[in-house]
Design a protein around this nucleic acid. Sequence first.
DNA 1: ATAAATATTTAGATCACCCTAAAAATATAT
DNA 2: ATATATTTTTAGGGTGATCTAAATATTTAT
Lengths: 220, 220
Amino acid sequence: MKLSTAEENYLKAIFKISEKAKKSASTNAIAKHLSTSAASVTDMLKRLAEKELINYEKYKGVTLKVEGIKQATQLIRKHRLWEVFLVKKLRFSWDQVHEIAEQLEHIESKELIMRLDAFLDYPKFDPHGDPIPNADGKFTIRSQTPLSDMHKGQTGMLVGVKEHTTEFLKYLNSLNVKLGTMITVIDSVPYDGSMSINLDSKNEIMITAMVAQNLLIRKG
Amino acid sequence: MKLSTAEENYLKAIFKISEKAKKSASTNAIAKHLSTSAASVTDMLKRLAEKELINYEKYKGVTLKVEGIKQATQLIRKHRLWEVFLVKKLRFSWDQVHEIAEQLEHIESKELIMRLDAFLDYPKFDPHGDPIPNADGKFTIRSQTPLSDMHKGQTGMLVGVKEHTTEFLKYLNSLNVKLGTMITVIDSVPYDGSMSINLDSKNEIMITAMVAQNLLIRKG
DNA sequence: ATAAATATTTAGATCACCCTAAAAATATAT
DNA sequence: ATATATTTTTAGGGTGATCTAAATATTTAT
């Protein structure tokens, strides 16, 4: 089935919202995610329901049908493969690639994505540590913990970030924190959740709970 | 100025038509080129004129203004760079890349194109031998002659093709004719313009005038 | 030079996608 | 449990891009 860019963006939004919330996506949540009006969302939901891509009942929120999930997953696959291309081949930094990949993900060609995947050596994770679904839509699962859940003395490697905003990523750049950085919890303050951490057994820094929540660690 | 995909396609069509015809582009020619109706073209021409991208007078055909030329040239630059990427990096063959590049050329990011150009080592010609305009819109000029204009005994290298259809390119594949192939005119038939030619000093084949017209040779 | 053929524009619609304002349904708070 | 707040939908409209059919302008051929 051939979808418009707008339709694809709605499917992706619904996928991401229900993944995070672990339940159906509300009209308002979708509107917020796509920076559009609730009325526009209702409009589009009717069209997507008509095309059998979503389960939609008035006032009840929406979930993706099988075909909708497939489309959303392929879109995420394309987005993340392009991000790898931009960072690994074109030497963009991880804070510059999101917007461009948002456009590239809508390019339509199965063959292109197959070849891009091969060209990049079948990467399993994108530059932010997010898993890249394979051609069948399967995600690689990896055990990971938000840094904020770790305790004094524990150590692990930074394998992903939850926030993808330029500001957050640039802040990490300024701290010299990147995927692969080894992090040890020196101390954590129960009162506000802030932490002192050690980076690669070298410098020690202080971060807020908000930052710690967005850093995903593979322990050990 | 930010343009829609449709607007960009019209500018490119006008550019290509006036380049080939060396005069203003007619409504019908544009409609044919874009497989749309003449009425739709008139509609769009009004909008493009409003935006100061074209010179348009009712019933008089259209030409591009400076900004229109700039936009069309950049689009061609992007299209051809992406074609090089697809062939050189992703190993597509020259008959498979046009459609995909038609989509990729609309991706908006100056930085992306700068980096892609560098990644590809600043190519001057695309996989069909067409010149790639530089960032300032300048095309590299190369002396070339349609094979159909060459005479018995003359030799040269195939440096470009005029036709870009899959059928034509696949036909060339089947003859093992590609860019770089050395071609010598063995004989030509004045009656129908057909030719006997030699490829790389090896096999000899017969081609029609229609084919010979679409092969561009750098003599010597 | 006028009739016929062709090219172009206008008129009037449609579709996808978006909007605001108002109405209706659902959730919440006392 | 009812009033209030919030969420969602409907109503009505706008824009960009397309279409067909009809009207008009230009070109061509006799």
